[in-house]
Nucleic acid binder design. Structure first.
Length: 613
DNA sequence: CCCCCCCC
């Protein structure tokens, strides 16, 4: 019986510089193995050993074919027809990269007794390397993950390849067209067709190694994105050529391992432009526009500080334009904070800087997609936009439309959960791991009944309650007057107020609140502690001023009376504590707000809707 | 080979 396999294919690959043109071989899979090195996008990668009945050869499959491995369509002894592939030499070894394949019906038996072609060839001592001057295109007839029309555009490329051929240097100067996802340091001949989605300014630097300049761009195609950097001469050669938004062919550049801490580009590798790098503009506009890798606002607790991420949200509030002076350079910077919310019900502050802060306008609560914003831990979690980040207002992408729909239908009336700095110390900064979430609305009765603050973990919750009583006897403590902000308790030793921490003596302390309030709602009451900022907000007088009035014998009772009866929405922390060896819960108020009755009502409507009546 | 990106 004739073998269904394409006899001689392995030898053909081994002896050709590029994939054999027009050949769609049928091969048998001898083994499937997951390799340890992740793919460009961090996905699993699989290596196959393929047999033509006589020899076997190694192959990698593009990650879009991974599901076929997982479903066992790609498995040992299965016959496959390669309908899209390229070949590559890696340190003298040949590798087939499969972009598209079809399975061929077969009874599951192994065919023939194939041997390792490389060993056979090397043992024979003969090098049959092709000296063909032709530059065959890779075989891709149908759509491969959006790589349709590759052959046409590749062939129509004209530029680098045609010039190389005209230069009479024999071998093609550039490799076949690759998906960005398929790039790795182990391949040297490739061309990508990609859009520039971001281009940096030219940056000049000077360090021990000397002076220089550099710029970077992000390239994107249907399969992924990759960052590319050019130094010195590459800046002169390519900076003006590479325009944001335009499509280019790029070849003959180096692939390095990406330094991920400096980039949010979703690729294990990055491109380094070299002197022989070739970049040619491309008219084909089919390459997609921008690729986001959104992180939900509620998920920012699971990111590390300083990590870069993409976030999409509704601009709920726009802060005033402000200015700060950089500690490092003493230079002033314009800044503007905005509040972003998404359908997770969480909100986060995002800071814009410089020109972007000055010109930012969003009075109609638009959707904005941010790319490459930096996560900070101020106030639990915050975001900061810097020069390499980009923003798209009301982008035409599904995530944006979904968010718009959600916000207009219900999000408008949602009370959003804010990050709090206490979450930096709490187990699991997301606030979701174990402890009650800060925005979870509880009545006082529920907080007690559910035993919040009774476990090892600190619980956070929000409650709306009315001040029933404020303890007047002790409302403050004498604190260190250091203008840098120390706030430690100081003691009067007769010659002044000593701060042990600052090792300084002050003529007078600054009094700070530790205020005990009894607050109640329709379910019960509890004692809570307010520290300086919250207490000052409630009493509308500073502790220092109140202490001065008290010391001069004025009646300060009116301040406490004025605050009593106020109803506030309190962001609470419930923490285990002990008093006279008895365990008890200490309730601390982290933030007091005027109630948002609209949001509270929306919460109640939610609860009503959940009732089974 | 850069990689700083600001403040509370």
């Amino acid at each position: 019986m004739a073998s269904p396999l394409t006899a001689g294919f392995c030898e053909l690959v081994f002896n050709s510089a590029e994939a054999p043109e027009g050949v769609e071989p049928i091969l048998q899979i001898l083994s499937v193995k997951k390799i340890n090195a992740p793919g460009a996008s961090g996905q699993d990668r699989y290596r196959l050993i393929l047999s033509d009945g006589k020899h076997f050869i190694q192959a990698m499959i593009a990650t879009q074919l991974n599901p076929m491995v997982e479903s066992k369509e790609i498995d040992k002894n299965v016959l496959i027809k390669l309908t899209g592939y390229v070949t590559n030499a890696v340190q003298g070894r040949k590798l087939v990269i499969i972009l598209q394949l079809e399975t061929v019906p077969w009874n599951g038996e192994k065919i023939g007794n194939p041997t390792n072609l490389e060993q056979a060839q090397n043992a024979g001592g003969a090098s049959n390397q092709s000296t063909s001057a032709a530059a065959p295109a890779p075989v891709v007839k149908q759509e491969v993950g959006g790589f349709q029309a590759r052959q046409q555009s590749n062939a129509g490329r004209g530029g680098a390849q045609a010039r190389a051929a005209a230069g009479g240097r024999g071998k093609q100067e550039v490799g076949p067209l690759y998906p960005i996802e398929g790039l790795s340091p182990y391949q040297n001949k490739w061309t990508i067709k990609a859009r520039v989605t971001q281009k940096s300014d030219i940056k000049h630097y000077s360090n021990q190694r000397g002076e220089g300049k550099l710029f970077s761009v992000t390239f994107m195609d249907e399969t992924g994105e990759i960052r590319a950097t050019g130094f010195n001469e590459a800046v002169d050669n390519f900076y003006n050529l590479l325009e944001e938004g335009k499509v280019f062919f790029i070849s003959r550049a180096r692939i390095n391992i990406a330094k991920k801490q400096f980039s949010n580009v979703n690729n294990e590798y990055e491109i380094m432009f070299e002197n022989q790098t070739e970049i040619e503009p491309c008219d084909d506009d089919s390459v997609p526009q921008v690729k986001f890798n959104f992180k939900g606002i509620d998920d920012l607790g699971n990111t590390q500080k300083d990590e870069l991420c993409d976030v999409i949200g509704i601009v709920k509030e726009v802060g005033e334009l402000g200015s700060v002076t950089s500690k490092a350079t003493n230079k002033p910077f314009a800044k503007r904070d905005i509040q972003l919310v998404d359908s997770s019900g969480h909100s986060v502050r995002l800071t814009l800087w410089g020109k972007q802060a000055e010109t930012f306008q969003a009075d109609d609560q638009p959707v904005i997609a941010f790319k490459g914003v930096k996560v900070g831990d101020f106030g639990g979690r915050s975001l900061s936009m810097f020069s390499s980040a980009t923003m798209s207002v009301n982008p035409d992408i599904p995530e944006a439309h979904a968010l718009r729909g959600w916000f207009d239908a219900e999000g408008r009336n949602t009370q959003f959960q804010q990050y709090t700095s206490a979450m930096n110390n709490a187990a699991g900064a997301s606030g979701a791991a174990g402890g009650v979430k800060p925005s979870e609305i509880k009545t006082i009765g529920e907080a007690k009944d559910e035993g919040l603050g009774m476990s090892e973990k600190t619980d956070y919750f929000t409650t709306t309650a009315t001040i029933a009583f404020i303890k007047q006897e002790t409302f403050s403590y004498p604190a260190c007057a250091n203008p840098e902000g120390c706030n430690k308790k100081v003691v009067d030793d007769g010659s002044g107020w000593l701060c042990e921490k600052c090792d300084k003596k002050w003529d007078a302390p600054i009094h700070r609140y530790i205020l005990s309030l009894n607050v109640m709602d329709h379910t019960g009451s509890f004692w809570i502690t307010l520290f300086n900022d919250q207490a000052e907000q409630v009493l509308e007088v500073s502790a220092n001023e109140l202490m001065r009035l008290k010391d001069e014998g004025s009646d300060i009772n009116s301040y406490f009376q004025k605050a009593t009866g106020k109803t506030l929405t309190l962001q609470m922390m419930a923490k285990q504590d002990s008093f006279n060896d008895q365990p008890r819960v200490r309730y601390t108020c982290r933030k007091a707000n005027v109630p948002d009755y609209r949001a509270d009502s929306a919460h109640l409507i939610n609860l009503i809707n959940q009732m089974n009546v």
